[in-house]
């Protein structure tokens, strides 16, 4: 899985999993079917899911992203849209675990780093280096944010997720 690309900025805290993928789509039994419905119910001014999500690979957002329901449909809806990294001030526990379990990245950064990423404006591309534990973006000048990954979470990402990790070990 690659962890870089254009950024979708969601400037709000407490974005819940009902907003990421509404319950009315939980009757789907394929991940692919979730694709058109990502962030369909997000309450965010001027946000247009169809136009704004296309081509994005990374989400940068505020606090407590992914709160509410345990539905793994939320990370799946991101994944089938090509988004494999969420960078936030903080996450809800289940969503964060679901991301790592899928071999995806939920990166927590201090407020000042999140602020500095938001300050870069819309057309930003980010590269995440898991080994160096850095988030790097190049606009006019380079911004480099250092993060810390729990060693187990890192092992999950390197294994390609919890299924592969657990199959080998338990």
């Amino acid at each position: 899985m690659r962890f870089n690309g254009p950024v979708l900025f969601l400037d709000r805290s407490d974005i819940n999993t009902d907003e990421i993928i509404p319950a009315r789509y939980l009757t789907e039994i394929s991940k692919e079917a979730l694709r058109p419905h990502l962030l369909e119910d997000l309450s965010l001014e001027e946000f247009d899911p169809r136009a704004d999500i296309a081509g994005k690979r990374v989400i940068v957002t505020r606090s407590n992203f992914g709160c509410g329901s345990s539905r793994e449909h939320a990370p799946w809806a991101l994944e089938v849209n090509g988004i494999t990294v969420v960078v936030a001030r903080s996450f809800a526990r289940i969503f964060r675990q679901n991301m790592f379990n899928c071999g995806m990245l939920a990166i927590e950064l201090p407020k000042k780093d999140i602020d500095s990423l938001f300050a870069l404006g819309d057309k930003v591309t980010i590269a995440v280096d898991i080994d160096q534990e850095t988030v790097i973006t190049k606009v006019a000048t380079e911004v480099c944010c250092k993060f810390t990954l729990n060693s187990f979470d890192k092992a999950l990402v390197q294994a390609g997720g919890w299924l592969a990790y657990a199959d080998k070990k338990y």
Binding site: S70, R71, E72, I94, N101, W162, L163, A166
Partner: peptide
């Protein structure tokens, strides 16, 4: 509460992290 991947491992192996 957990997600579907945790559930799958739980069903198969009876463990969860």
């Amino acid at each position: 509460g957990i997600g579907t991947t945790d559930l799958e491992v739980g069903i198969l192996k009876g463990v969860c992290s």
